[in-house]
Amino acid sequence: MYDEPHRWLQAVENRTQYIERRLRAASPAIGLPYENGALLFTVCPHGQRKVYEVYDRLALAALGHPADVERLRMMAINLAHTEGFTRSADDVTLQRLLNFAIAPQVKASFDEVFRSPIIAKMLMVELTPNGAEPQFFTLNFDGNFTHRKRYGVAGGTSASEELMLKVLDDESPESTSLEDALKAAARTWCIGYYVATKEPEYDEPPMPKDADIAEMFREAREDLRFEAAVLDRTRSGRAKYRELTTEELSALDDLFPDNAAHRD
């Protein structure tokens, strides 16, 4: 049935649509630099996790089906650890992991139209040893990946990703402090999640109203859990990853003062 080129094309098209539909309601992940390294932020249901340590200076935040996320996560961890052990921690870079190992496998899996696809996206971040800016990579479900220096996002729809990137372009955090990075990430998350779930029909969704953003934030705070971790280059020892404490996350409490959430 798939021996004719256009049918194969149709199959890939169907597959893409199916995955996109499944990912639409996924909670976005946002990565931002801050004074001591890089922050990864997302929102997830209680009892679940989406932000993970991969290696000494690598972390990821994923969205999609938990089983697929787990496969990608373990692939990254296995590769990083064997490479780091047999060569050196300095040889474990995201560029190499993605370019030569993860992306080709995800692509191969996407191309196997008879088998169930990987329904997941990943935002990966790397802290470079020389103190330069952190590197952000977003891996798509088809094996394609993009690299960004200033920040990274992964969202349920490409329209929501574009809008989140625009928000980060236009509204850089007030300072380089962790608190301000966290606030910028949470605001961006609200915008991304809002347009992906409430306005999926737009190719170029308009910027949500402030009241809608605040409402989105309030809903998330009530029903879900904020999850954030940093790669902190001031941490002693090799491993730079640490999860943010409840106290650090409480910086988000005054992001939208309650009255702003009420519509007129």
Binding site: R71, R73, M74, M75, N78, F85, Q105, V106, I118
Partner: peptide, 19 residues
């Protein structure tokens, strides 16, 4: 390169991963 490994491989055992 082998195909995507099942997530349950090795169960956190680095020695098995190495071998």
């Amino acid at each position: 390169m082998d195909t995507m490994p099942p997530a349950t491989d090795f169960q956190g055992d680095f020695l098995s991963l190495l071998s």
